[in-house]
Amino acid sequence: MKIYSLSGASGTGKSTSALQFAHEHNIPAIIDDGLLIVNGEKVAGTSAKFEKNTLKAVRRAIFEDESHKDEVIQALKNGQVDAILIIGTSDKMTGKIAKRLQLGEIMTYVHVEDVRTEKEIQMARFIREIQGKHVMPVPYRQVEQNFFKRLIQRGKEIFSTNREKIGETTIVRPDFHQQTITIARSVYLDVIKHVVEKNTIVSRLVHLHFSIVSVPRVVIEIQIAAPVSYYIPDAIKQLQQEIADSFQFHFSIGPEEINVKIVGIETTIR
């Protein structure tokens, strides 16, 4: 069996990237947070995200419980998989899991920075640290909903480059994740309005739509100032960059989308 390791700090998006990485490298099986996932479906194990505190979650993830470990070992033997990806917070952790599951030595070590951009990692941290959401790389229908009292929702479908569906994710908020930061929607809006209103090309902010289902998205409609003695595309790009920089400064994340629509031109006195 070919054994791969994917490691990175908590909340950097390893589970989200795992299905795509496994597909690209012809790896049918994934070990993630105590689960054995084969071809995008949960086959055996119990997720560490079901535990009530962090210590128990870590123990679950590294298969310290004998019955849990034996269940996954047997499923691996029955499935006869030829390659597996082990996910953990460090190379040491994935090595420990490989040893516990009697898989042998890890052949290839990959880190989350190798498969995700800095922006994607920042977005993943935002979802984890601000919203307290954790991603499981298994379909919504396979998650035992009674374990989660506060949040469980569909994540997203994962597709290959040729649009073949290779799996799904589910978003949960485990009981052990108690520390979240609440940022009022009005704070995000105030930041956007401040940037837009101080920009010299903008005469008026006509409409602002802000959504944050998972990560921030911004849609604004503006009237620009006359006379138009500037190159509009460059001016709009500069406005988008100013909004992104302000979000980065205040929230340590840039919006995934910043769409600007010009709806008119008017003369204004500043």
Rank of each mutant, 00 (worst) to 15 (best):
V138P: 00
Q248S: 14
H25N: 12
D190S: 15
S186M: 14
H177G: 03
M123I: 14
F21W: 02
T54G: 04
F251C: 02
G79K: 04
K56E: 14
V115S: 09
R154Y: 10
S17W: 04
I152M: 11
P233D: 01
K52M: 12
K99R: 13
F249A: 14
F50G: 02
I166N: 03
N26V: 10
H111G: 09
K52R: 13
Y188W: 13
E242R: 09
T16Q: 06
V218K: 03
G155H: 03
D82H: 09
A225I: 05
D190H: 10
F176D: 04
L85C: 00
N259T: 12
V219P: 01
N259E: 15
M136T: 05
A9F: 11
D245E: 10
Q142T: 01
D234N: 15
E64R: 11
N39Y: 06
P137Y: 10
E144W: 04
I84Y: 01
I97F: 00
A83Q: 03
E64S: 10
Q145D: 13
I192F: 08
H23P: 00
Y230A: 09
T180F: 15
T54N: 07
A61R: 00
T200K: 14
G132I: 08
V112D: 01
I152G: 05
I86N: 00
L35K: 02
R163F: 15
S15L: 03
V143G: 02
S203R: 08
T182E: 14
I212S: 07
V263Q: 08
T89W: 02
I258A: 01
R154I: 13
G88L: 01
S160M: 10
I192Y: 03
V72F: 00
H111M: 13
E256L: 10
K165D: 02
I171C: 06
Y140I: 03
V135D: 00
R59C: 14
K133L: 15
N259K: 14
S47I: 01
K237I: 07
E41P: 01
Q223N: 13
T182G: 14
P233E: 03
R154C: 11
E51S: 04
L19H: 01
H25C: 02
P233Y: 11
Q223A: 13
E144Q: 09
G79V: 01
R60E: 03
Y231S: 08
K56F: 10
Q145A: 15
E197T: 14
P227K: 07
N162V: 09
D245W: 00
K165I: 08
G132Q: 06
K42R: 11
H134T: 11
H111C: 13
M1P: 01
A9V: 07
Q131R: 12
Q131T: 12
Q240S: 08
I265D: 06
L189A: 15
V218F: 06
E113D: 13
L189K: 10
A57Q: 02
P255I: 05
